[in-house]
């Protein structure tokens, strides 16, 4: 990949709010050039979405997240793709991956209560044909999300002044 595009992506990954003008100044490109490159990467599906990392615990809102391990019998024609596609369509499923190891699919599922999550897993996921079993792990505490440490305030302890 083009080096400048890689730099643009690195910056956006750390701060998607940054304006095209600032980004251009930082990377020695014109504002127009930045705009062109970003829109090309959006069209190509390289940049999928601009979002925020939120610590919902801090909002006081009730929310339960679970990591769900799913064992699947792959279909002869489609492998894991068709079943994964079905699971991915549920809005409760925040992320979905095919992984190596003792199970096949790893889901991150959210709901308002533990009951809601478990009903979703048993009712909508475990009951699907070709699912051989599920194990649900309720998340107790999130320490790090998308590179962001949630339990630690960012920054370094420094003197306000030094030479």
């Amino acid at each position: 990949m083009d080096e400048k595009n890689r730099e643009i992506l690195k910056v956006l990954e750390s701060d998607s709010r940054i304006g095209h003008a600032d980004l251009g100044t930082m990377l020695n490109l014109s504002q127009n050039e930045i705009k062109k490159r970003i829109s090309a990467m959006e069209k190509a599906g390289v940049i999928r979405k601009y979002t925020a990392i939120i610590d919902w615990k801090k909002t006081g809102e009730d929310a339960v997240t679970a990591v769900v391990e799913v064992k699947v019998s792959p279909e002869s024609e489609f492998g894991y793709d068709r079943i994964a596609d079905r699971i991915a369509r549920f809005p409760e499923v925040k992320s979905l991956r095919l992984v190596t190891g003792s199970y096949d699919l790893q889901l991150l599922v959210t709901g308002k209560t533990m009951q809601e999550v478990s009903e979703f897993v048993s009712g909508q996921i475990a009951s699907l044909e070709s699912i051989r079993g599920t194990v649900t792990h309720i998340v107790m505490k999130t320490y790090k999300e998308f590179g962001c440490e949630l339990q630690r305030s960012e920054g370094v302890e420094r003197l306000p002044y030094s030479f």
Binding site: V156, R158, L159, P160, Y161, S162, F163
Partner: peptide
């Protein structure tokens, strides 16, 4: 000047001669 700085809040300090990385 340094002493004054220590008494103030909400200061953006561009006076720090070390990286802000851990």
């Amino acid at each position: 000047f340094f002493d004054l700085l220590l008494t103030m809040n909400d200061v953006i300090s561009l006076g720090v001669g070390e990286p802000d990385f851990n």
